[in-house]
């Protein structure tokens, strides 16, 4: 299992790039991936079900205290904030919404920064509000690798742009470039 952990956050317009990324990763991809996407409560199909159809990796919707495993994609359940409790497991909560969202990306990124420090790779994708920028900055301050989806490749650029504006992003990449970067880190493992 790689020391590096990948965290991906997004909102409006982020499902498509997440599918692009996941469908390009091989079944032996060694880094654990955790995905937090804002979701409307009315959607009947869960995000994890959609993603499972596009990934060679096991896709799991997280339950409370779920443990990290390699070759696995973890998805935050709708209606809960997702915390990285420590290096071993997640925890969930129904604390108040942030940026009208639960899960909120800042919650997951901030706790991931504290748990994994420089081994945290955080990626902020397309979205229509500013959630995620503060969490991405925290990952950067803890020595982690921070990526914002390039605004021109984003369906809605407010979310990645706000991370670029507050200088939270080490790199500004298109989904294709994000895939290349992830595969490089996989080869290191």
């Amino acid at each position: 299992m790689s020391d590096y952990q990948v965290f991906i956050g997004g909102s409006a317009g982020s499902i498509a790039p997440v599918i692009t990324i996941l469908s390009s990763l091989p079944a032996d991809f060694n880094l654990t991936i955790t995905i937090v996407i804002h979701s409307g409560t009315d959607s009947k199909v869960s995000i994890s079900e959609i993603l499972a159809n596009h990934s060679a990796l096991t896709v799991i919707e997280i339950i409370d205290k779920e443990q990290f495993n390699p070759n696995t994609v973890y998805v935050a359940p709708s209606g809960y904030h997702l915390y990285v409790e420590n290096k071993h497991h997640f925890s969930l909560s129904v604390d108040r919404k942030e940026y009208y969202s639960r899960p909120a990306i800042n919650v997951t990124f901030s706790s991931a920064a504290e748990a994994f420090g420089e081994y945290c790779i955080a990626i902020l994708l397309s979205g229509a509000n500013e959630d995620g920028a503060e969490g991405l900055l925290k990952v950067k301050r803890h020595g982690g690798i921070t990526i914002a989806q390039s605004p021109k490749s984003s369906q809605v650029d407010i979310m990645p742009q706000s991370a670029i504006d507050n200088r939270a992003a080490n790199k500004i990449l298109s989904p294709k470039e994000i895939i290349s970067l992830l595969l490089e880190y996989n080869d290191l493992a």
């Binding site: 904030h81 915390y83 409790e85 420590n86 925890s91 909560s93 604390d95 919650v107 504290e114 748990a115």
Partner: peptide, 9 residues
Amino acid sequence: YARASIKRR
């Protein structure tokens, strides 16, 4: 209490 969430609160 789970530490990460109590810390954020």
